[in-house]
């Protein structure tokens, strides 16, 4: 495909995405919202992965953002629109503080600690009964944002997704790309080229956590409700991870592609074989990882380039 064609195609997709509420009913809009939410989480996970750090803490930061937003509205009387950037800033602040400790860890130690932190956040929220509402959760008395208008809620999630895509492109096109790739490849030679490893990891961790927190805020504002088991659900960690792996990591389009595919398949399977759909998706992911370790995004490359990638 040549560049102009790709551009035209992208513009058409963008127009269709923005205009979707004009011709789609409530059900497809709901499906699209879900897919976009997971897509944005998948992109944010991939952004940190580019430095070689595998986080299992997506749900933790998503949940923190969700609670920051809803408690901001319910306890502090914050306007709903403000609660979403507040969720992002709050998650970023938490990430900044814990980053000082956990970004000294590597490989599975980092992964396990991020997983444990998510669980710790959930338990804290669970137990601070008076402030957070405990296991029963919190309800927004004033109701869902935009009075539950399906189109506006759809655009809200779309806006969140665009923020994630823009941040991901920034990571790809700026010096951040060089810093993170150098760190992932070899930290010692990165240092010798003047890369301040801790600083760049902290930046990546804070930015991706802010995105995850913002999405938590968007989620909770569009449902008007938060409970620990809902917003800290392992789904928010596992599905984005699966989507990014399926589509192909270290890029923006990989997670986008993976989220569309897995999201649509999951939706369809849910109708065909309720509960059994998880098994099918597990199998899909295993097949892709075994036979296409670079993910499905590789299928979009010209054949010659693919062959080169294989021999390399």
């Amino acid at each position: 495909m040549n560049r102009t064609l790709v551009r035209i195609l992208l513009i058409l997709i963008a127009v269709a995405a923005v205009a979707l509420p004009a011709f789609a009913g409530d059900y497809p809009l709901q499906v699209a919202r879900n897919i976009m939410l997971y897509m944005a989480l998948a992109i944010s996970w991939d952004m940190l992965l580019r430095s070689g750090q595998i986080s299992f803490g997506i749900a933790g930061l998503f949940g923190i953002g969700a609670y920051a937003a809803i408690l901001g509205v319910v306890r502090a009387g914050m306007p709903t629109w403000l609660s979403i950037p507040f969720a992002a800033v709050f998650a970023a602040l938490v990430a900044f503080l814990i980053g000082f400790v956990i970004l000294r860890l590597r490989a599975m130690y980092f992964s396990i600690v991020t997983l444990a932190l998510g669980e710790i956040f959930r338990i804290i929220v669970h137990n601070l009964h008076d402030f957070t509402g405990g296991p029963e959760g919190v309800v927004m008395q004033q109701g869902v944002m935009f009075g539950g208008n399906a189109s506006k809620l759809y655009w809200l999630v779309l806006a969140g997704l665009l923020v994630a895509i823009a941040a991901s492109y920034w990571f790809e096109k700026s010096r951040i790309h060089f810093a993170l790739t150098a760190i992932r490849n070899n930290e010692i030679s990165a240092k010798s080229s003047g890369v301040d490893i801790f600083r760049w990891l902290l930046l990546a961790f804070v930015v991706t956590s802010a995105i995850q927190g913002m999405l938590g805020g968007i989620f909770v504002m569009s449902y008007g409700f938060a409970a620990p088991d809902v917003v800290f659900s392992a789904d928010f960690t596992l599905l984005p991870l699966a989507m990014a792996l399926l589509g192909g990591v270290y890029s923006t389009r990989g997670p986008i592609f993976g989220a569309i595919l897995l999201g649509l398949v999951a939706e369809w399977l849910k109708l065909k074989i309720p509960y059994g759909h998880l098994v099918v998706y597990g199998i899909m992911i295993i097949i892709v990882i075994l036979f296409m370790p670079q993910g499905l995004k590789n299928l979009l490359k010209p054949a010659a380039k693919r062959a080169e990638g294989r021999s390399a």
């Binding site: 790739t181 150098a182 992932r184 490849n185 070899n186 010692i188 030679s189 270290y250």
Partner: peptide, 10 residues
Amino acid sequence: YQLIHPLENL
């Protein structure tokens, strides 16, 4: 470095 590590994805 004695053991050379090219940055593979660059």
